[in-house]
Design a binder for these strands. Structure first.
Lengths: 145, 145
DNA sequence: CTGCAAGCTAGAGTGTCCTCTAGGTCAAGA
DNA sequence: TCTTGACCTAGAGGACACTCTAGCTTGCAG
């Protein structure tokens, strides 16, 4: 995420640095998810700069947090257009942040349910493997676990 | 999630109750993601019971928290086999819980980065829309935002 | 008894996000 | 120079989790 500001990096180096595959990097470029065009060597090979790597780091975070590529592209578009549309960038990020909060809440709820179930199993294991667990007999009022 | 233990429910009612589409419910059944076969009416229509609805509620939580269907199927298989494999169920849930923790951590990190970026934009908006933001000129040492 | 919403099946289609392939080219060490 | 590994493009392929379609049946309200 922090790289020498003057050096140029090959696609392989970048892939390693940001934890994506070279395939994915080329795919992102094709899909216009990067800001500014990536420079090329005389022979046509990509030469990424520190800025590109920083941006890819941000991309990774946004993706990991569930931002769809379409929205990431929108964000990249806005940045590519240069200063003047900060309000829209802000809206986009705010919307995403709301999504992230919601997802954290959902995950925490799931965590509790899992913990509860885990507990049920641990107790059954301690008690000797078969008490009130579900069983395809007596189709009424039994636990599912 | 808590339903009358004796009543039977149509697929539409269940879909509404658990927040899935009827398509998804049929799909889950085909894919063996449900425990026990769903009962049918004389005419062949599904009649879900409270147990099924409970299980679907758990499915929803596990899915929301990122458990792949293959693993959910594995879990359903274990339950279908009846008591005796609690240790394996526990392993499965523990593994998933670890995944959930990791995802929560990742989301919280992302949240901070987003908050920081949001801040940058807010400041720029307050300061008058164009200071040190990225601009396709002077390709060195500038912020990306 | 008629109408019509809701249900049925098997299988094809969709959207998302990469990943891989084929058929080459480039670059750097021995 | 030769070899080897990394890189190139355009497009096909694939995993995942549904979602929809077509053609038909059920079942309840009027």
């Amino acid at each position: 995420m922090e790289a020498d500001s003057r050096r140029r990096y090959t696609i392989g180096e970048v892939a390693h640095a940001v934890g994506m595959s070279v395939h994915a990097l080329r795919f992102y470029e094709r899909e216009q998810l990067l800001i500014g065009p990536i420079q090329r060597s005389a022979g046509g090979q990509r030469q990424y700069g520190a800025v590109d790597i920083d941006w890819l780091g941000i991309c990774t975070r946004l993706r990991e947090s569930g931002m769809p590529l379409a929205e990431l592209r929108r964000f990249a578009d806005l940045i590519r257009q240069g200063p003047g549309n900060e309000a829209e960038r802000l809206r986009l990020l705010d919307a995403h942040q709301a999504r992230v909060e919601k997802q954290i809440a959902a995950l925490e709820e799931a965590r509790e349910i899992i913990a509860w179930k885990t507990n049920v199993y641990q107790q059954h294991l301690r008690a000797g493997d078969a008490s009130g667990l579900w069983d395809p007999t007596a189709p009424q009022d039994d636990q599912v676990t």
